[in-house]
């Protein structure tokens, strides 16, 4: 529109003091004094976050630093850390050349991808099936969420009992139906142990995907669906062309959260098998735990942790990107 008419009258240079919401327009700050001044002007705001930051620093920043440091040292058993000796990258080379490492990495990959993908698909499908209102929907939803609420320790014991090689109910049913001669040994068998544990993990995790996708489904605009219906789209086409694209961001966030949780899971394999038999169900976390607390090899365990850290940072990058992608979409909508 018209240029500001008074600009020539008010042409004198104003020394601008930077205050207020910088995020509104992020520009280069006029030097350090500007930033310091800003921090000073917002000093009261920090008081609100200070308690949280203080706790975080102590329990998070320090451990991260310490883990990185320790990963370059050889540590004697028993944690007399005065006696540690610097060995450079030896811990890392030892890990990357060990056979167990590749075995465990492969297991972690199967565990994470399998659990994440199947949990997501089952959760999404359940959310879709629950989207239409029917009698008892609320009760059904509550029941389906319970596995997510109860402790993973309890879940591990329940399923351990279900899989039991002598008295397990699945084995008994298979024998009863004539599908097996004797109860199969699910978790004491190198080839079936990982899939069996994944089933348990999915049992606990699909409700999370379900909740997220149910919430996502509620944001799909009815008008779009109705418009598609008028345009002659079938139920499947409406899902594929309207619902699914609309849920892309929620799906990405959900899958990332699931992937991170699975990558970090510990309890189910630890309690059900302890990583066995012969490392067949060891994943990174259980392996690190065993190295550190079982065999007291702190240096190697720390190096493992640092590698894990790097992988998670990469995942975290995508997580943040997906989150801010969400925000962008909201903004333009």
């Amino acid at each position: 529109m018209a240029p500001p008419v008074r600009s020539d009258e008010q042409g004198h240079a104003t020394v601008t003091i930077v205050t207020g919401k910088a995020e509104a327009r992020r520009r280069l700050q006029p030097g350090r004094s500007g930033t310091l001044r800003k921090i000073w002007e917002h000093r009261a705001d920090y008081a609100y976050v200070l308690p949280a930051i203080a706790v975080m620093l102590m329990v998070i920043a320090y451990p991260i630093y310490y883990t990185i440091e320790l990963s370059f040292f050889k540590t004697p058993p028993g944690l007399q850390l005065r006696d540690k000796t610097f060995i450079g990258f030896d811990n890392y080379t030892a890990i990357l050349t060990s056979q167990v490492f590749w075995k465990v990495t492969w297991n972690t990959l199967i565990w994470t991808l399998g659990s994440t993908f199947i949990s997501f698909v089952l959760g999404f499908a359940t959310a879709l099936a629950l989207h239409r209102d029917f009698i008892g929907r609320g009760v059904l939803r509550a029941i389906l969420i319970i596995p997510w609420v109860i402790s993973a320790v309890a879940a591990s014991y329940i399923w351990k009992w279900i899989y039991h090689s002598d008295f397990g109910i699945i084995g008994a049913v298979l024998v009863g139906l004539g599908l097996a001669d004797r109860p199969p040994n699910f978790i004491d068998n190198v080839s079936t142990v990982l899939p069996s544990l994944i089933v348990v993990n999915i049992w606990r995790e699909f409700p999370f995907a379900m909740i997220m996708m149910m919430a996502g489904l509620q944001t799909v605009p009815d008008q779009l669906l109705r418009a598609a219906k008028v345009d002659g789209a079938s139920a499947w086409q409406r899902f594929w062309h309207v619902t699914f694209p609309h849920l892309r961001n929620v799906s990405v966030v959900t899958m990332l959260l699931l992937a991170v949780a699975n990558f970090n899971s510990f309890i189910i394999p630890w309690i059900m098998t302890g990583g066995g038999p012969s490392n067949a169900s060891h994943i990174w976390i259980t392996h690190i735990y065993e190295l550190a607390f079982g065999r007291q090899r702190w240096g190697v365990a720390s190096a493992y942790s640092v590698l894990l850290f790097l992988i998670l940072m990469t995942l975290g990058y995508f997580y943040v990107r997906a989150l801010s992608g969400n925000e962008r979409n909201e903004g333009s909508a």
Binding site: P63, I64, T67, F266
Partner: peptide, 11 residues
Amino acid sequence: MFPAVIFLVPL
């Protein structure tokens, strides 16, 4: 994003 194990040793 970070697993308990990373923090376990230092903690």
